[in-house]
């Protein structure tokens, strides 16, 4: 259950909430690091989040959510 505590108007925070497109998240292993990604083009994946429990990857600037990886 979410309680949003913000100064930002709630109707702006939740704007387009109902009409967003289907998420196409995939679960992959990249260099042995499990993560959830979203394909954004041919051989291009945007990192959504890491599932891996190795802490050093969380400080790696190339693996921050939103960065693009490719194989």
């Amino acid at each position: 259950m979410d309680v949003i505590y913000t100064t930002y108007p709630l109707d702006l925070v939740l704007e387009n909430k109902g009409q967003e497109e289907e998420f196409n998240f995939q679960y992959i292993s990249y260099n042995g690091i499990e993560m959830q990604v979203e394909p954004v083009g041919w051989n291009k994946f945007k990192i959504i989040r890491l599932y891996c429990t190795d802490l050093k990857h969380y400080l790696d600037s190339n693996l921050q959510p939103g960065s693009i990886i490719s194989f």
């Binding site: 702006l12 925070v13 939740l14 704007e15 387009n16 909430k17 967003e20 989040r49 890491l50 429990t53 802490l55 969380y58 921050q64 959510p65």
Partner: peptide, 15 residues
């Protein structure tokens, strides 16, 4: 949250 929001994601911040 919808993509117009700039967000801080706790599942990344906490680890």
């Amino acid at each position: 949250l919808p993509p117009q929001n700039k967000t801080t994601k706790y599942e990344h911040i906490i680890p």
